[in-house]
Design a protein around this nucleic acid. Structure first.
Lengths: 216, 216
DNA sequence: TTCGCGGTAAAACAATCGTTTAATACTAGC
DNA sequence: GCTAGTATTAAACGATTGTTTTACCGCGAA
């Protein structure tokens, strides 16, 4: 690895952490370079411009997400649909909240892309979110014994998605909650297994409803 | 109403819309003044600084939210707990997605405060979110026939909250979804009643689970 | 009228942003 | 050991940000 690649890597590492934490817009090039111990011009030299660096970070994020989705797919192979959903929720929450060495920055980027999209947003939708949605939809369609085009499949998928992504922003949510309720407990005090179980069972109960969704 | 109050109001109106759409940070003072047809110095003259204007906008947002929560409380008075939850979901989604004359900007502000907090975030937590959480928690505790301090109440509340807030960002979500699936349908094609019903029934099914949440 | 004052306007302020420049330090190839 | 090309550095650039300044306008009171 040449000197070049070293600072290149340091820049990507720092940028990943910062972009994940604060979003593309809020992070400054100077901040990245300070953390990477590189000169201010390093970003433009190695990546053309700030968006070029971000594009590279998004590349890595997409790759990790896809491999994670593939792992979840393989890990659940052969299991009945409901167990595959339980497995999926577990795997995703682990990826989201798994600890210090986790890829939390990735979902930080996706979360920020949701509230403040960059030119990379469509790519993230196509290459990172789509495989997830397709996998989850197939599980739910199997549970409901209906085609994946059924509206209930889409809504059930959104329900699981929203629940998991909500807890993916747990630190921020708890900061808010503790402003309102000072003794709000730490949801992960007993690890994330109880939480993942709750989300899975809660979702399964809702998905299993076969009644048409019109009216009360 | 003096000339002064007129531009003051125009500034608040423009700022509410823009802050709700883009968040505090991303909106510029010049942008607000251009939309309000006021001079660039008007913000500093009337509100001290940009944050003072934002504080005033947040004041109004909190007032509207609290009155909305009070209306939902009264509208559901006397009903059984499950119907109160259905009513609550309906009312909230209406406020979130009700149309052009709605207060969507309010939840835009809250959504942005979640991913990019400002100094106003704790106040929003205390004065806007807390009453909501307390009301919803009381409903769920009644359904579960348990004290509001039970962890299942908190998790059930978060489940409803996450589901509703997810659809509160429906426009952005659909933009993302259509990048991945070009023919993603419009969830509100038949109005928001079917969607609200789905969310309510989905949530009730999950909440009704009495089984302890540990293990599978 | 003249004065005082709240409101508005144009211009400029300092700070910060992403980016560029020009010079220097380093390394590989002959 | 010299050269060519790459990587790094300090400094500055132009654009944009929130804010301040200064002058001006309109209008009721003395």
């Amino acid at each position: 690895m040449t000197r070049d690649a070293a600072t290149r890597d340091r820049l990507i590492t720092a940028a990943s952490r910062l972009f994940g934490k604060e979003g593309y817009r809020r992070v400054t090039v100077r901040e990245i370079c300070r953390e990477a111990k590189a000169n201010v011009a390093a970003v433009n030299y190695h990546f053309g411009d700030k968006l070029g660096l971000y594009r590279e970070v998004v590349d890595q994020a997409i790759a990790v997400i896809r491999s994670g989705a593939a792992a979840a797919r393989e890990g659940g192979a052969g299991l009945p649909a409901e167990d595959r959903l339980r497995h999926y929720v577990h795997a995703w929450l682990t990826q989201l909240l798994g600890g210090a060495d986790t890829h939390a920055w990735i979902h930080g980027i996706m979360s920020h892309e949701m509230s403040e999209p960059t030119p990379q947003a469509p790519r993230i939708g196509r290459e990172a979110i789509r495989p997830r949605i397709e996998y989850l939809s197939a599980i739910i369609a199997e549970i409901l014994e209906c085609p994946v085009t059924d509206p209930r499949v889409r809504r059930g998928t959104m329900a699981v998605q929203s629940h998991c992504l909500w807890y993916g922003r747990l630190p921020r949510i708890q900061a808010f909650a503790r402003a309102a309720f000072p003794d709000w407990p730490n949801e992960l005090a007993d690890g994330l297994a109880p939480l993942a179980d709750y989300i899975a069972e809660f979702s399964l109960a809702g998905i299993r409803l076969r009644t048409p969704t019109v009216g009360g």
